[in-house]
């Protein structure tokens, strides 16, 4: 399907013929793609096109109706839709991250910023308070939040800070892949820019794969290596980001690209 993956014998994550129906309603249908290590994939499309449904199926938050999600985990290639739930939960907890559009869904709002970052560390067995504290401070600095606010509740943070905190809380246990559901929506443009800046730095430094669901083509262009365009639950076009955005082939993609306001 794509040029990039032909030489990669083992992708990090492979989605095969994934479908999700809500009764008669189609969520997404016959989706197949692969993500290589350190690759950033963007899924774009208008709202209601099935992007988030696809991401939720990959993250195990929704049970897919059909198809497979193969993940190249530390214990070999696993079908996350089929294998033992205890194992899937463990792999999702330790090797993936999930950033939601609304930070209040991804963060525990009644627990301090440090506690939110430390939660995954403790979930993975760290039992040394000072070490957890040190990691939390380091990650706050990495996502450009004042370390002095480590004991403040996320509800006292601005929207952009909450989103950066959410990213830190997900990256702290060094996942192999991050799943992001419109992380920049609802943020001011300048705040978006800062978030993207932080993300770019982190992604390049950590050798991290990412699936980014967004309807913001500017974000997609800045972050993603490859893009998939979805419409009515199906992938209508795919390719390198610049190729898709500069030379869209499908009429739908052309419409999507031309609908972006140019300053």
């Amino acid at each position: 399907m794509s040029v990039l993956q032909e030489n990669d014998s083992l992708p990090l994550l492979e989605v095969r013929h994934l479908s999700k129906f809500f009764g008669k309603q189609l969520g997404c249908h016959d989706i197949s793609f692969a993500v290589s290590p350190a690759e950033v994939i963007g899924v774009v499309g208008e709202s209601g096109s099935g992007k988030s449904t696809l991401l939720d199926c990959i993250a195990g938050r929704l049970k897919s109706s059909n198809g497979a999600v193969l993940f190249n985990s530390s214990v070999g290639m696993l079908d996350l839709c089929r294998c033992d739930e205890a194992l899937v939960r463990k792999i999702i907890r330790t090797q993936t991250g999930y950033v939601t559009q609304n930070a209040s869904q991804g963060l525990k709002m009644h627990i301090s910023a440090g506690g939110n970052i430390g939660e995954k560390l403790m979930a993975n067995g760290m039992r040394n308070y000072r070490q957890i504290r040190k990691e939390a401070l380091a990650w706050l600095a990495k996502v450009e939040i004042d370390p002095g606010r480590i004991d403040d509740l996320p509800s006292t943070f601005s929207g952009g800070m909450q989103q950066r905190l959410q990213i830190a809380a997900n990256l702290v246990n060094a996942p192999k892949i991050m799943l992001m559901d419109e992380p920049t929506s609802g943020l001011d443009v300048s705040v978006q820019a800062r978030l993207i800046d932080v993300l770019r730095k982190l992604v390049s430094g950590l050798n991290l794969s990412m699936i980014l669901v967004t309807h913001d083509l500017a974000v997609a262009r800045l972050l993603c290596h490859r893009l998939y365009v979805m419409k009515q639950g199906k992938i209508v076009e795919s390719g390198l980001s610049d190729q898709i955005l500069d030379d869209p082939r499908q009429p739908y993609t052309q419409l999507l690209v031309s609908s972006v306001l140019k300053p």
Partner: peptide, 22 residues
């Protein structure tokens, strides 16, 4: 119920962490 079943207890320490932080 699932956290008990799969012995996912690490986050139990978050409560204690919050205590020490405060």
């Amino acid at each position: 119920a699932k956290m008990h079943a799969f012995e996912e207890y690490g986050s139990m320490h978050v409560k204690l962490y919050e205590d020490i932080a405060k």
